[in-house]
Amino acid sequence: MLAVHADRPGGPEVLTATETERPTPGSGEVLIRVLAAGLNRADTLQREGHYRVPAGATDILGLEVSGSVAALGAGVADDERAPSVGEPVMALLASGGYAEFVSVPVGQVLPIPERIDPVHAAGIPEVAATVVSNLNLVGRFQPGETVLIHGATGGIGVFAIQLVHALGGKVAVTASSTAKLEQARLLGAQILINYREQDFAEVMAEHGGADIILDTVGGSYLERNVQALRRGGRIVTIAVQGGARGELDFGVLMTKKASVSATTLRDRSVAEKTEIIDAVRRIVLPLLESGQVRPVTDSIYPLAEVAAAHAHFDTGTHLGKVLLDCRVGD
């Protein structure tokens, strides 16, 4: 099968699709014939040599796919969540998605709702798992709360806006342009902040503060994130695009009875990921089936053009997900 590796750390040009041995599903695993794969920030960090592949995982890039079930490993048929051979599915991976086939634990596999295009479904698993694990499980979101989302128009942002809106929350977002903020508004955002022109902490204070901040920036935003919280607020940091270090005033944090958490998804155990995917199954699938939440795709590239896909992703101009079409010779 064809699969994508980075032959050395570097830019998009280091990515090549080469012939690789097709995986065999182990006990408790599902073999998926990949239709499409989603690009994520962790993929670019891995390409650059800044993200260690989890122990036991392949160095083939890709954290999420859609496709159809090609085979079932031992014991899978006895699992109540087990899909049937030939069934359309989407899955969260530790790695291996930029390929024609991938094996994945059955607990990380989800059915594709009928109203969702199977290619576009490739952009759902990683963002859904990230948002649900942080917003709902760590952040303890409740209907009526205000959620500030940094990075409104990336894959995480466009999904989180829709989910918070569908679950009855009020959405505040930051973005770098009026055009991006308008796209966020169309998805359900109500408080629109251009971070190049406005201080988001001041704007949030005018609106009573945020109950939850879904933070992709990290250190450089830490102080203002705390300022932007209301009493009992929660910051959940999922990326550190603005640096891994920041200054925290514990006095302000204590006065607000607030908290700061930080998580990663890729290096979690299969049991932890299964628990998260079960929450996605419970919370997100009904919203996808009803149309209240939908995948937002910016662009789709053939697998052979993976370098061009990464180059586009690196510009940061995409709205929603960048995908790879992994069908080869079909």
Score class of each variant (00 low, 15 high):
222 L>N: 14
200 F>E: 01
181 L>K: 06
216 T>P: 03
182 E>G: 02
199 D>S: 09
230 R>L: 02
207 H>K: 06
199 D>A: 04
181 L>D: 09
187 L>S: 07
220 S>F: 07
215 D>E: 13
231 R>N: 01
206 E>W: 03
226 V>L: 14
189 A>F: 02
214 L>M: 09
193 I>N: 04
207 H>Y: 13
199 D>H: 08
212 I>A: 06
204 M>Q: 11
225 N>A: 05
207 H>G: 10
231 R>L: 13
224 R>E: 14
209 G>N: 10
209 G>Q: 12
199 D>K: 01
223 E>L: 13
207 H>R: 13
188 G>P: 06
212 I>E: 00
189 A>V: 04
232 G>M: 06
220 S>L: 14
185 R>T: 01
202 E>T: 11
213 I>A: 03
182 E>Q: 13
225 N>E: 05
205 A>Y: 01
211 D>Q: 05
199 D>I: 07
181 L>N: 02
215 D>Y: 04
205 A>T: 10
187 L>D: 08
197 E>Q: 12
201 A>G: 13
227 Q>G: 13
214 L>A: 02
195 Y>N: 10
196 R>N: 15
229 L>G: 00
200 F>A: 06
197 E>N: 07
226 V>Y: 06
223 E>T: 15
224 R>H: 13
181 L>S: 11
211 D>S: 09
216 T>G: 14
206 E>Q: 15
197 E>K: 04
212 I>R: 02
203 V>W: 00
205 A>W: 00
194 N>W: 02
202 E>D: 05
183 Q>N: 10
200 F>L: 03
217 V>L: 14
228 A>C: 13
181 L>E: 07
198 Q>H: 02
205 A>F: 01
232 G>P: 10
226 V>C: 06
227 Q>D: 15
188 G>M: 10
229 L>C: 04
221 Y>S: 14
193 I>F: 03
185 R>M: 04
200 F>S: 01
181 L>V: 12
214 L>R: 01
184 A>Q: 03
191 I>K: 01
230 R>G: 14
206 E>R: 14
